[in-house]
Design a protein around this nucleic acid. Structure first.
Lengths: 214, 214
DNA sequence: GGTATATAGATACTCATATATCGATATGCT
DNA sequence: AGCATATCGATATATGAGTATCTATATACC
């Protein structure tokens, strides 16, 4: 385990592909032993050289004629992607999307636990799916009492910047923004936008670009 | 309106930024008239040249000393992104995420209407939020009766490929995949993966990379 | 009406990413 | 044990996106 154990800069393209590698490898029956870069590449539609270069950045060496040890790769990917470290998150905005995320139990696979939800509407402060929804006024106090790693924003566009500021003030340094707002935050805070609008645009354009299917 | 009225290839980076431009411009009080590329650039953290190059691909010319006419830009962006054309969608998988998307009324802003939801579990075939959830067995018949543009997959990983195949068979040519599965589909079908795992990884790594937040 | 200026558009350049080619090496078979 | 081969790793090339610089032009002001 060399210099890349932690803290290396990884190019955005690499960060996009690594979860795909992990996902693919996890779907392989365990005990299969080794896999070649070409096999991974053709399964995911990448080039074999690209797969090797990506894996070289995060894992130990592969063996000629054999490929890479699958279990090693999975462990290296999970570690690199941060899935093995526990991260606590809070949601602000208990609308439909917020509640869906709050109730989704698949995040634990990535080391993420959503520990609380907040909403400006005091009336919905009740158990709905799996936990309490606190009034937004309690947010900063809650953050002082618990160590919160990630803030998830699922409020409407008009409220998003206010919520973002509040999160920053409470020491949250990673924000996952599901609102359509463009958030401004200090450089020390990472903001990740879940870009539904872009996805819809890509799909919509694809429909118009090839009018004749088949 | 020249050659780029429709059907031009747009680079992924451009496709990522265009919704941001639109979003930003819509937040400007209407009747403001013109805006310069430098103003847009500094608001969104891009370079002014990049903004001009992006806009040159989708809109008419700007005026020296004035900038671009805001209303024109908004119209061009909405048209290019496909938000002005009606697109019908169906959801397969009536779990929490599926129901959240089904109940979300913000998609109409992008020209997207979710017209039906399906689930393998026949028991949940009832009105929940705003519409009927049909049993999955009715899916292909429904698609024959209605023109469906986009298929949204919110089933677990193990079911996703099966659902994808069914959608392709029913003539759906654009698929929005919220499951963690890697889907294989013909080239004529556009698959867009909503990459939650990547987002979590980016945020998680950012937490580990700067241990001293300030 | 002339001139200074802000701004767009075009061109040239830099940098990063992805691809192709070549050489090195461990494995398995004869 | 020796050799053929599949696969990795390194080097070189190509492609493309982003940036910087320069030129052209429409506006506003004097």
């Amino acid at each position: 385990m060399g210099k890349n154990a932690c803290g290396n800069e990884l190019a955005p393209g690499v960060m996009r592909r690594l979860p795909c590698y992990l996902n693919y490898l996890k779907g392989i029956p365990s005990g299969s032993g080794y896999i070649s870069s070409a096999t991974v590449a053709s399964a995911l539609g990448y080039g074999d050289v690209q797969v090797r270069k990506d894996l070289a950045q995060i894992s130990g060496r592969g063996k000629p004629k054999m490929g890479y040890e699958i279990d090693n790769l999975i462990a290296a990917l999970e570690s690199t992607l941060g899935y093995t470290s526990y991260k606590s998150a809070v949601i602000v905005g208990a609308g439909k999307l917020g509640m869906a995320l709050y109730g989704y139990d698949g995040f634990s696979e990535y080391g993420l636990e959503i520990v609380a939800a907040f909403d400006a509407d005091e009336k919905i402060t009740r158990d709905i799916i799996r936990g309490t929804i606190y009034p937004a006024s309690y947010f900063s106090e809650y953050c002082r009492k618990h160590r919160i790693d990630i803030g998830i924003i699922t409020v409407p566009r008009s409220e998003a910047q206010k919520v973002c500021d509040e999160m920053v003030k409470c020491g949250i340094r990673a924000i996952w923004n599901f609102s359509p707002a463009i958030l401004s935050a200090p450089d020390s805070v990472t903001v990740r936008n879940e870009n539904m609008a872009e996805s819809i645009a890509v799909l919509s354009r694809s429909l118009e670009e090839m009018p004749a299917g088949k």
